[in-house]
Design a protein around this nucleic acid. Structure first.
Length: 485
RNA sequence: GCCCCCAUCGUCUAGAGGCCUAGGACACGAGCUUUUCAAGCUUGUAACACCGGUUCGAAUCCGGUUGGGGGCACCA
């Protein structure tokens, strides 16, 4: 714990691309834990690998976090007392701390070339021993080091792992975890380009930013003993660790691209609601112990606790996400859907020709059969434009040779209607069916196909009353042409 | 290869020794409803990896086996 005893957690992504759903889950748990405990949620950018830096990734990360509603208290753009929050702006700090370790003999300079290191690893692999730095440079005399430095040889700084020690720490999720120090490598903590590696930067920043709980993915579990050692080298108290179970591909390997969409961005584009994505990801590795499955972000905050986080990995199966999206979508008010729908129309058609009253009717009609917000415009396209083609399968089933004449009679009857009420259409159709001595269905299905081009959707009388009498008749006439032609 | 972690229906999970002939949800099947498609309602199929202990009693505790995963970089 830090001095003030307040919970301070951080989400620390590296700006190498889009926010991953695994990253989202990590960010979410950090956020929930902070909010639940009246703590502080920090965003820190770990950009110490210049070769993997992606232009615009930081902005994208922030924007995505904003979209899902995970508001950070301290971080880039926003600032805070412990900044800067971008590691490339903290280089002096890392340099100073590496220097301290050098002074105290907890670290040493290494001049080995990557070629030599590669060769060494190859040999070790051949000899079936675990790859580890052979400490060649530990034997260098101060004079040799001085000379190498003077000659401008590229140098890194390695931590000096003590021999024959046990390194253990308590993990909130996994309990006590212990490692033999002899298995640990003399990890590089400062690269030859003057940037720190993750291990140093992470430990220094977590300490300086007074992080109380390190909540991160399980892939970090095996490097945690190195971090613990660094804390000990500096004489610092350990934060609490909580290593989250991994998110998995269907084949149970670590969730990755290749096997489907992993970027939050992808799901956003597909029309998933942030509420659904957050809800879904929250339940991958955590549950409240009740049978409730649908949560708002606020509800998650009140219910969340780290001790109900699972140990085993969870497959990211979007089937359940789809269902959650449907559930969250139906919880939205008509007004909320309306404002999104207007944006979608502009996206799809370049403009929105319809007034709110019209769109509200469409929403009411479509509500129950929409899982994704974009289905309002995709599946319900016929509310916004006449069908340009007719589903061949349905045509085969619903349009018979006699349909042209029957639809003509129907159109004639509709022409007599004073207005466009649902009941008016329905009664008119019944009358036509009766005079033609055919079943209502014999008219209903061809009519649906004529006005929508497809075989499913809201009640046909809802559709025609929304698009109106004139448009309905126009579409019936087009359909008749098609049947005849 | 070495180290670490994990192990309940296809998937997400409940289960902290008797409440378990293992519960819920998604998905899937059937039925009802519906003059379409969905939704809704009812209902069904489906799991404690294995082997040994401990115990009167084990999905739950212990050991091992097997299986899966993660890590072993001048990447995070």
């Amino acid at each position: 714990m830090n001095q003030s005893n307040t919970v301070r957690v951080r989400f620390a992504p590296s700006p190498t691309g889009f926010l991953h759903v695994g990253g989202l889950r990590t960010a979410l748990y950090n956020y929930l834990f902070a909010r639940k405990n009246n703590g502080v949620f920090i965003l820190r950018i770990e950009d110490t690998d210049r070769s993997r830096y992606v232009e615009g990734a930081v902005e994208n990360l922030i924007e995505t976090l904003h979209w899902v509603g995970l508001v950070y208290d301290e971080g880039p753009k926003k600032g805070g007392a412990k900044g800067p929050y971008v590691q490339s702006e903290r280089l002096d700090l890392y340099k100073q701390h590496a220097e301290m370790l050098l002074q105290s003999g907890k670290a040493y300079r290494c001049f080995c070339t990557s070629e030599r290191l590669d060769e060494m690893r190859k040999q070790q692999e051949k000899a079936k021993i675990s790859p580890k730095y052979d400490r060649t440079c530990l034997k260098l005399t101060p004079a040799q080091i001085e000379q190498n430095l003077k000659n401008g040889l590229p140098a890194v700084i390695r931590m000096k792992v003590p021999d024959g020690a046990k390194v253990s720490f308590n993990d909130i999720i996994r309990g006590n975890v212990e490692f033999e120090s002899d298995r640990l490598d003399d990890q590089v903590i400062m690269k030859s380009d003057g940037y720190p590696t993750y291990h140093l930067a992470n430990v220094v920043d977590d300490h300086l930013m007074e992080i109380s709980h390190v909540i991160r993915g399980e892939e970090w579990l095996s490097s945690t003993p190195k971090h613990v050692l660094l804390y000990q080298f500096f004489g610092w108290d350990l934060p609490q660790f909580a290593h989250l179970p991994l998110l998995l591909n269907p084949d149970r390997s670590k969730l990755s691209k290749r096997q489907g969409d992993v970027a939050v961005e992808d799901y956003r584009k597909k029309g998933y609601l942030p509420d659904a994505l957050v809800n879904f990801v929250a339940l991958l590795g955590w549950n409240p112990g009740t049978e409730q499955e649908l949560f708002s972000l606020e509800e998650l905050v009140t219910q969340f606790s780290l001790d109900r986080v699972n140990k085993s990995g969870a497959v990211f199966d979007h089937k359940k996400l789809d269902w959650m999206n449907f559930e969250h979508l139906r919880k939205k008010t008509d007004a909320e859907v309306l404002s999104i729908l207007k944006k979608l129309l502009v996206e799809k058609y370049g403009k929105n020709n319809f007034n709110d009253d019209y769109l509200s009717k469409v929403i009411v009609a479509m509500r129950e059969r929409v899982s994704f917000i974009n289905e309002y415009v995709d599946n319900g396209f016929y509310f916004f434009q006449p069908p340009t083609e007719y589903d061949p399968e349905v045509v085969k089933k619903r349009w018979k040779p006699e349909s042209a004449a029957e639809l003509t009679a129907l159109a004639d009857s509709f022409k007599q209607l004073p207005d466009s009420t649902k009941e008016g259409f329905e009664q008119a159709l019944h009358r036509v069916a009766e005079s033609l001595k055919i079943e209502n269905a014999k008219l209903i299905h061809p009519l649906r196909l004529a006005v929508s081009g497809v075989g499913g959707g809201p009640g046909v009388f809802d559709i025609v009353s929304i698009i109106g009498k004139d448009e309905t008749i126009r579409r019936i006439q087009n359909a008749i042409e098609t049947i005849k032609g």
